[in-house]
Write a protein that binds this DNA or RNA. Structure first.
Length: 1021
RNA sequence: GGGCGGUUAGCGCAGCGGUAGCGCAUCUCGCUUACACCGAGGGGGCCGGGGGUUCGAAUCCCUCACCGCCCACCA
């Protein structure tokens, strides 16, 4: 297997470009990367289940020679689901842990940001579940008003040539529901392919009946409290979506534009000699709605004009010249400004201040209205050109300058927005914001990384009222009823029977729906049953954490916090973890419109869910952005380039179909394989008598008893002394596994070998790192230390040292290997759930599932610094000897004599480790000179001198070259140390221990230099 | 215009006051009773530029440059 699949061409520009259009019609949302559908299909998670047979293969029998994620993942997920491991119940005997996931849009499909988000969720949740908490991760989706309506509208237009108006409101909404039922779970299925252990039995949708009740309740409450009001003002309007949108749904786009200078004739100007005033504008078409010209009150150029009038060109309207210090910057343009209160936010405010009329010249369809006189009916962009032409013809166009404008665009459809005067529902923010600011200030809610706290507070403190009405059909319809007789406004769940004011009996409901974010702001409690006082709400609220993206701190996080404070009188969660933005290989943000996104599902199909998760999480710490790389291979020279390169370094252009890889995931995949193989080794050596035992099905939902039973082993304290048994058997309070060194039955030296003490000390260390990393949301730290431990310590050293003992029939080593592997699998499980479970199920002693087995815990007393120090010295000695062998080109298989001098006494007993790992026979000598150092290679490890007789091993030329190199590097380092040590400042100001360490180091180097020099000298003779 | 990140070996990253580490890639050797998706060893870096603080700076401060993200009503 080459490990690569070809990528199918998608889109026209670049092979990995996806169309910017939303998925439409009967086609499910398309993947960004599109491999053959047979490969991409997330798994057999949905639809036909032929898992029963596969489960056996995945969960029992010998571990396959090759690690193949596909063979275990679907089967395990199926089994976990069947057994209800993801489901959480209220359990008063245990502490709760609850996260409600950020609900993705129903129209969505997984991209890397989601991959990061939900993987972090699952890691934390699996960790907490293993720790024995009643753990609920509640999933769901958001109805995403505008986005979903757009998708269905487009589908209707393309497939049936119908607009929503052709269908009518009720029928259209019905069609959206149908679409939702059919495609709305795509993203949910994709989460499952990542292995997410969310409680699917509690999955929610923001338009579920119960959830909708919560939305009504919230609205009516806020209305009755006077927070919600109707306002007639300028708001952002999307002419394509035909709805108002809130400020934070606006994106900016820099566009090349112009600044037009127009002359406005001054009324009776000839009488005092100033006939025109020149104004500058970027939007000429709005001049038709001008109702004033403004200047700065202190601008000396215009003092005489303030209070006079101009005659608005084209329209012939007489409008005043006003002075407004807020609106006008005298430095810009001509210092004179046209004022269009109906089409500009600042002008609207100025209009309010100066009591100006508001004339709407652009309609909701972005066409000019009747008020636009000769231009009525024209598109706004056509009208712009027409106005400029007319002004030019009338001799009123002074000049045109190039000017970069920042156009507001709709973050959903990218249409240029129009500030439009309209009547909308608003939510007053000042009172609601206050407590939400307070709880963050007081650290009741803690942001991680904490820099985001400032971002949140800055925004909350200058919050404007929230426009909550949308002119859409898909969403929660605003529960406002107008009396048809007297117009009285009532907020109610259902139409009132009778008008409280006039006794009228006929009502009309407000046609608008609520902003999507209104409903999602209730998410942490509405999903748990609010406004009902359910046991779940009582038990799980406040939830434990929120994990989300920085881009929705305003849109969502802030609103959840103030809604939580308003309705629950309590924070929604104490922790807000903001994860990094995912960038592509070029450091640009991954986004749909750029087409540079990577679909994690594709990575799962290529590398497996465990590798994908691990690769993602290795980067998930406190970084603000992380990069995800994709490479493709040149078919000519086989070299790899970034995925969007046009040409290979060899000059060849890339074909449309290429081999690709994700190096970070590939690396993670190697790690998976390493674990698999190491596990195979351990299991092969556990022996028949310890073969897998049948599990007890009744334990299914209960937490596993801690693995190590009392009496199986006794804890080993620092320094290797045996201490009182504090095995988990005596600790039923904590259901987590207490890490401890297992115990050899007798005290025979070899069984309590140095390497055993060392590895358990290291295991304690890594256990602590993983727990601390998880607790601090430093998932990258946790995975790094795990990787280091498993690969470099357990595999490279302990297993290698174990081989000798295994062949010698030492029973202790088998037990140690078993316990260490067991602990590793537990530590690994949150990150690599499938692999760890599949292996764990084959351990001699295992429960129903690793998911509910205890998570290792440790305290620092379990580290054994003495053994760590000794092992470090021994390992360094091995490396140094290997190093010499390699440089001397000694045949790898050849066992050679090695002479050591100056070996600390407490190390001399452990030389078998060195002999074993460096293929040598160690002999001690008190002084290297005493031996025949003339024909020897010499080196050192710390203060230990190493001498290898060269007799019959090497030619002396090589050794002399090697010595010269070593001497040079020794001299260089000594020189550096001398520089410091001869510096009085250093000697007097640096801490004593630093100085003495340098001195010690110097002396050691000096000694090595002397030996090397002598050896060189002798070898030359 | 403001704010926040980043800039360390070819690539992706760690280190955040005592003269540089990891993985991949590369080179040499090796199928040694888990793993060639491997093992052993090696080469490769004036830690973005410039100032400063300090006995000592990749690490702290200032400044500039470049990359990215967020916020802001300059017509």
């Amino acid at each position: 297997m080459c490990g690569c699949v070809s990528v199918w061409v998608c889109g026209t520009v670049r092979w990995w470009t996806v169309s910017t259009r939303e998925p439409v019609g009967t086609t499910p949302p398309s993947s960004v990367l599109r491999p053959p559908s047979s490969v991409l299909r997330p798994s057999s998670l949905k639809g036909e289940h032929k898992m029963t047979a596969n489960q056996d293969i995945a969960l029992s029998g010998e571990l396959a020679r090759q690690y193949e994620p596909g063979a275990i993942e679907a089967a395990l997920y199926e089994r976990w689901m069947e057994r209800g491991y993801f489901h959480a119940e209220v359990d008063r005997d245990r502490a709760p842990y609850c996260i409600t996931i950020p609900p993705p849009n129903v129209t969505g499909e997984l991209h890397m940001g989601h991959g990061l988000c939900y993987t972090i969720h699952d890691v934390l949740v699996r960790w907490k579940r293993m720790q024995g908490l009643a753990t609920l991760c509640l999933p769901g989706t958001d109805h995403a008003g505008i986005a979903t309506q757009n998708v269905v509208e487009r589908m209707l237009a393309e497939k049936e040539g119908l607009s929503r108006h052709d269908l009518g409101r009720e029928a259209f909404v019905q069609r959206v529901w149908e679409w939702k039922e059919k495609y709305g779970s795509t993203i949910i299925e994709q989460m499952k392919s990542l292995g997410c252990s969310f409680d699917w039995e509690r999955e929610r949708f923001t338009m579920d009946a119960a959830y909708s009740e919560a939305v009504l309740e919230a609205f009516i409450h806020l209305f009755n409290e006077g927070y919600i009001y109707r306002g007639y003002r300028v708001s952002h309007w999307c002419p394509r979506c035909r709805t108002a949108i809130s400020d934070i749904e606006v994106d900016d786009e820099e566009q090349a534009g112009s600044l037009w200078y127009f002359k406005y004739p001054i009324e009776d100007g000839y009488m005092f000699g100033t006939e025109h005033i020149v104004i500058a504008t970027t939007r000429p078409e709005t001049m038709l709605g001008d109702t004033a010209v403004a200047v700065h009150p202190e601008d000396p150029r215009y003092q005489s004009l303030i209070g006079r009038h101009v005659v608005l060109p084209i329209m012939g309207r007489r409008i005043p010249i006003i002075a407004d210090p807020i609106l006008v910057d005298p430095e810009f343009g001509t210092g004179a400004l046209k004022v269009t209160p109906a089409h500009d936010f600042n002008d609207f405010d100025a209009g309010e201040r100066n009591d100006l009329p508001k004339i709407t010249v652009i309609g909701p369809d972005a066409r000019m209205t009747e008020e636009a006189g000769p231009f009525a009916g024209m598109d706004r962009m056509d009208a712009r050109a027409a106005v400029v032409e007319r002004m030019n013809n009338d001799g009123l166009l002074v000049k045109i300058e190039d000017h970069t404008i920042v156009a507001p665009i709709c973050d959903r459809c990218k249409t240029v927005l129009e500030p439009l005067l309209s009547e909308q529902w608003y939510c007053r923010m000042s009172e609601l914001a206050a407590p939400a600011i307070g709880v963050v200030r007081e650290k009741q809610i803690q942001f991680t990384p904490d820099r985001w706290e400032k971002v949140y507070l800055d925004w909350m403190e200058r919050l404007r009222d929230w426009c909550i009405s949308r002119q859409l059909w898909w969403g929660h319809r605003i529960p406002i009823y107008y009396c048809d007789s007297c117009g009285k406004v009532t907020a109610a769940r259902r139409p009132p029977e009778r008008c409280a004011a006039c006794e009228g009996i006929s009502f009309t409901q407000d046609p608008d729906v609520l902003d999507t974010w209104f409903s999602s702001s209730l998410w942490p409690f509405a999903t748990l049953g609010w406004p009902q006082r359910t046991p779940e709400l009582d038990y799980f609220y406040p939830t434990s954490a929120l994990i989300t993206a920085s881009e929705i701190i305003y849109l969502w996080v802030a609103r959840m916090i103030f809604m939580g404070m308003e309705f629950m009188k309590d924070i929604p969660y104490p922790d807000v973890y903001i994860y990094a933005t995912v960038l592509d290989a070029n450091g640009e943000r991954m986004s749909k419109s750029k087409g540079n996104g990577i679909n994690p599902v594709l990575l799962v199909s290529q590398y497996g869910a465990d590798a994908t998760r691990y690769a993602i999480v290795t980067q998930a710490g406190k970084a603000q952005q992380i990069r995800f790389v994709l490479e493709k291979q040149c078919p000519e020279c086989k070299d790899w380039s970034l995925i969007d390169a046009e040409r290979c370094r060899c000059g060849q252009p890339f074909p449309e179909e290429v081999e690709w890889r994700a190096p970070q995931v590939a690396q993670a995949r190697l790690f998976c394989n390493k674990i698999w193989q190491a596990s195979r080794f351990v299991m092969m050596n556990l022996g028949e008598d310890e073969g897998p035992r049948t599990e007890d099905e009744s334990q299914t939902l209960r937490l596993q008893a801690p693995l190590l039973e009392a009496g199986r082993g006794r804890a080993r304290g620092p320094g290797g002394a045996e201490t009182e048994d504090e095995g988990p058997g005596t600790e039923d309070e904590s259901q987590t596994l207490r890490l401890q060194a297992p115990l050899p039955a007798s005290g025979r030296g070899r069984e309590r070998g140095l390497e055993d003490r060392w590895i358990f000390s290291r295991l304690a260390n890594v256990t602590q790192s993983v727990n601390e990393g998880l607790a601090a949301y430093d998932l990258d730290v946790a995975t790094r230390s795990l990787h280091e431990f498993v690969w470099s310590e357990f595999c490279d050293w302990y297993i290698e040292l174990a081989k000798r003992r295994l062949s010698g029939g030492d029973p202790t080593i088998r037990e140690n290997l078993r316990v260490i592997l067991d602990t590793i699998l537990r530590l690994l499980h949150p990150f690599m759930p499938f692999l760890s479970e599949a292996i764990w199920q084959r351990l001699p002693e295992h429960g129903a599932t690793l998911m509910l087995a205890g998570f290792p815990e440790v305290n620092l007393e379990q580290t054994d610094l003495d053994s760590e120090q000794k092992m470090e010295q021994l390992m360094d000695l091995v490396v140094k000897i290997r190093n010499m062998r390699s440089e001397l080109k000694v045949a790898p298989g050849l066992r050679i004599p090695v002479f050591l001098s100056n070996v600390a006494e407490n190390l001399t007993g452990w030389m078998e480790i060195v002999e074993n790992r460096a293929r040598c026979n160690i002999e001690f000598e008190t002084n290297p000179q005493e031996g025949d150092s003339r024909g020897s290679a010499v080196s050192a490890s710390g203060s230990i001198a190493i001498r290898i007789p060269l007799e019959g091993l090497v030619d002396f030329e090589k050794e002399r070259a090697r010595l010269s190199g070593e001497i040079a590097s020794l001299e260089k380092e000594i020189e550096g140390l001398d520089r410091q040590l001869s510096n009085d400042q250093f000697l007097t100001r640096a801490p004593e221990n630093v100085v003495s360490e340098k001195r010690r180091r110097r002396a050691e180097l000096e000694e090595r230099l002397r030996m090397a020099a002598e050896a060189l000298q002798r070898s030359g003779t």
